[in-house]
Design a protein around this nucleic acid. Structure first.
Lengths: 162, 162
DNA sequence: CAAATAAGGATATTCTTTATCCTTGATAGA
DNA sequence: TCTATCAAGGATAAAGAATATCCTTATTTG
């Protein structure tokens, strides 16, 4: 059970977009080059963010992506779910219904107890991601990344931002 | 990102094994029939439980599986990890290393901040499952399942337990 | 000795993920 | 107006994981 690599890509891309000045856009091409990723496939991840309403886009030269909201209003969960989807990790196929001792007209009162427990764990995972904002990530990165690298990366992005 | 169906199967099988009297074993065939599952493939899941030391086995007629420990000493996490593995859901491919602004001899001080956050969510998921014991599930099931069905299922199993 | 069992190797099938290619319509700038 | 650039998205292919089946081996019971 492994998350799509696009989740990792989307999170890193959002971190870059968070540093973009107001009104500027960054293209798929620039984001792909900065992270060393296949442009066409990264594009699919960015489209997912767009469809979820997390980023705005414009077409044409100097077009690209920017965040639709301030980084403090974007949670990890939103970004992860935009790319990965909202399906639970545990899918209940209701195998209890195959119990040969069961009356044929038997009707379940509630979801299977096994599923309920597994879904609680899923919810704990979501709750943790819901509690982290994109601005939190930027704050951590700004402390951890050496200031020269931080600065040069920012300049690299600005040179390509439309 | 969906868990293997074998996780569901393993949890239900453990719930059944939890009701087995001391010293008795239940075969793959019986467990597969009870849950309406493909015997050969369910066998792989049970082998995983065996390799993890969660169940004991014996060969020959009247052979099969039994829990290696009391249900109160078996957590959901152990069962899930036995089948699904212990790998994290988020795999960090360290794409920050592709940053074109990076000095070539640059060496990371710590794991990527994105990965650390995602791994915390993974750990919250694990912690939740670590807190649920197989005996908890049995307790819930014994309350929810109608007593006639509970009883007849128990008898069905005992008839087949070696 | 015969039947039943777990263990596990080999292989096939199906589905998801990853990836590429191409077309369309919109936009900016010359 | 023309051209280059861009996002969106459809079609398709390649790779990998999950699902499933079959078969052999060694062990155990009766």
């Amino acid at each position: 059970m492994i998350l799509k690599s696009q989740v990792e890509w989307a999170l890193h891309c959002c971190a870059i977009l968070a540093g973009l000045p107001d009104g500027r856009y960054l293209s798929t091409k620039a984001l792909a080059e900065f992270h060393g990723l296949p442009k066409e496939y990264l594009s699919k991840a960015l489209q997912s963010l767009s469809q979820a309403g997390l980023v705005d886009t414009t077409l044409g030269p100097s077009g690209g992506y920017r965040l639709a909201r301030p980084p403090a209003d974007l949670t990890f969960l939103e970004i992860v779910e935009a790319v990965e989807g909202r399906q639970r990790t545990f899918v209940c196929t209701n195998i209890r219904a195959n119990n040969p001792c069961r009356p044929k007209d038997y009707c379940e009162s509630s979801p299977c107890a096994v599923a309920r427990i597994m879904w609680e764990a899923d919810e704990a995972w979501r709750e943790k991601l819901r509690g982290v904002r994109l601005s939190d990530l930027v704050g951590i990165l700004s402390k951890e990344i050496p200031s020269e690298l931080w600065k040069s990366s920012f300049e690299w992005v600005l040179e390509r931002a439309g």
